[in-house]
Nucleic acid binder design. Structure first.
Length: 490
RNA sequence: GGUCUCGUGGCCGAGUGGCUAGGCAGUGGUCUGCAAAACCAUCUACAUCAGUUCGAAUCUGAUCGAGACCUCCA
């Protein structure tokens, strides 16, 4: 099998992926701050890494996939009086911060489950790692790269930059940062605006508070990822992922903290998933320009003309490369839905195909290789999907009798499609989950098909059309072919 | 204002110095009692201008336009 190449944000190049430990991969992905429902943009990022995780697993790697839950420390802004997002929500709703965390963590998991996500190996929380975070702050203070002011501790970015390169990931120069930093009110505690908080003093009214050597307070946002990635994946690990918008300053700060604390660059391959836009603008909670996953299922949104299945949405998202901006629109989703249904339908047809002695001009081995080549080239799911459609066409040709397939190749198509459609892309198999009702429904529809066929033989087209049209209205579509009639349920 | 990315046919989206992904929509055909589905064929492209090259949508420069980050954000 060929090598896997991944685009590394740190070098801005596609690089051959070689894990630290042969056969094992450590991957950390920045998870959500659980202060509100995840929107579709959030889902896209996590889906990108779900696909990465799935493909690495398929390649046979033992992957430790860590995706955190931020349940403390994420401030509204960087000013001294910046409010913790969770605490703010708790104030507003007059409930405990941990009730906020619980509510939206559950929502997060429910949403991802509907989109058929695999569960990460570890899903640690910031509040569960306060001790580890305090230990890191101590080390950074000891090494002289942080300073304490009024019960808060800040990372000294300018000092760090003397020996290291702050901005190496996002391609920024410290001089530009200094020059361009907007002055915010209430930043008096910091020596420089570029410095970032490792620990913040908690005001008496601040409800999220922990004791520390510097007084009662709470950890800074960037710190949790360093603490948890180091704890579970080590001082140097293979892949760190997150949304493009976290590249600066969040990931830059993570690198700085780890460099000082551990003495080396923490991550070999940085991966950044691009934004999902709506009306050409980034989907963001703060601007109100977003749609929630549930809107797809109900269809009740000004942006949607109808409801869409989770599988269809998943297909829509994976039809774009994870590093490209994807613009969401109802029309694009409608087009994807048709393509998705066509793909799924062909998988169903595949089960009914008869093999013959040999396969006519379709090279299954070469096709399979093309699928792997697509994924090995920086997880190019759109190319993979294009390849899948080439076999969809072939399947339909065999069904129509214009092509033939050998038993061996039929098995190879089936196994390869199962790998890429279900294991790698994570598209749900609508054939699965069969139950007694489904079986009975099938028998019922087949009875109607038989009745319609009889009506057609008797040229009673009024009755035959009535059966077909009324079934269609229910959402059951009949498809005639030379070999008889099959049906499809939307 | 600074840094970066992008601008592909009716829509969405790959790709790349010569061999014109794919899906959806359109058109013609096969099939059908009529349809639908499927299959076959087919039409729309590479923002603009200039340069490099035997050859550029792909490289370079300029222009215009869009977006991301610089402040919380997946």
């Amino acid at each position: 099998m060929r090598d896997l190449y991944i685009y590394n944000s740190l070098s801005s190049k596609k690089e051959k992926f070689v894990p630290n430990q042969q056969g094992h991969v450590g991957m950390y992905v920045c998870g959500p701050t659980v202060y509100s429902n995840v929107h579709v943009g959030n889902v896209r990022t996590f889906m990108s890494f779900d696909m990465v995780y799935r493909y690495l697993l398929h390649l046979g790697y033992k992957v430790r996939y860590v995706r955190n839950i931020t349940d403390a420390g994420h401030l509204e802004n960087d000013a001294d009086d910046g409010e913790d997002r969770i605490a703010k929500k708790a104030h507003l709703e007059k409930i405990e911060p941990m009730e906020v965390v619980q509510r939206y963590t559950v929502d997060f998991h429910n949403t991802l489950n509907r989109f058929n996500f695999l569960t990460p190996s570890i899903e640690p929380t910031a509040t569960g790692h306060i001790i580890e975070q305090i230990e890191i702050i101590k080390q950074i203070l000891e090494k002289g790269f942080a300073y304490e002011v009024n019960g808060s501790v800040y990372f000294d970015v300018l000092k760090y930059n003397q020996e290291n390169n702050y901005g190496e990931l996002s391609g920024r120069k410290i001089e530009d940062l200094i020059h361009n930093t907007r002055t915010l009110d209430g930043q008096s505690d910091k020596k420089n605006p570029q410095d970032f908080a490792l620990w913040k003093r908690a005001d008496p009214q601040h409800i999220m508070r922990w004791p520390s050597p510097w007084g009662i307070g709470f950890p800074g946002w960037h710190l949790e990822c360093t603490a948890m990635s180091t704890k579970y994946l080590g001082k140097n690990f293979d892949i760190h992922g997150g949304g493009m918008d976290l590249k600066f300053p969040h990931h830059e700060c993570e690198i700085a903290q780890a460099e000082i604390c551990n003495g080396n660059s923490p991550v070999n391959t940085w991966m950044h998933a691009n934004m999902l836009t709506l009306n050409g603008q980034k989907m963001a909670k703060s601007t109100g320009n977003f749609i929630l996953p549930n809107d797809f299922f109900t269809g009740e949104s000004k942006h949607l003309s109808k409801s869409f299945s989770a599988g269809c949405v998943r297909f829509f998202i994976l039809q774009a490369h994870y590093r490209s901006v994807l613009d969401f629109s109802n029309d694009a989703l409608l087009a994807s839905e048709k393509g998705y249904n066509k793909l799924m339908e062909s998988i169903r047809i595949l089960e009914t195909l008869n093999s013959s002695l040999k396969t006519s001009d379709f090279n299954i081995e070469a096709w399979k290789e093309s699928c792997y080549n697509a994924m090995n080239d920086d997880f190019n799911s759109p190319i993979l999907i294009a390849e899948l459609f080439s076999v969809v066409k072939f399947i339909n040709q065999v069904k129509d009798g214009t092509s033939t397939v050998s038993k061996e190749d039929l098995d190879l198509i089936t196994s390869t499609l199962n790998i890429f459609v279900f294991d790698v892309l994570g598209l749900q198999n609508m054939n699965q989950g069969a139950n007694q009702y489904k079986e009975k429904l099938k028998d019922t529809v087949e009875l109607l098909i038989k009745m319609r066929a009889e009506a057609r033989i008797n040229k009673d087209f009024e009755l035959s059309d009535k059966i077909r049209i009324q079934l269609d209205e229910i959402g059951i579509q009949l498809k005639d072919s030379k070999d008889g009639t099959i049906f499809k349920i939307d």
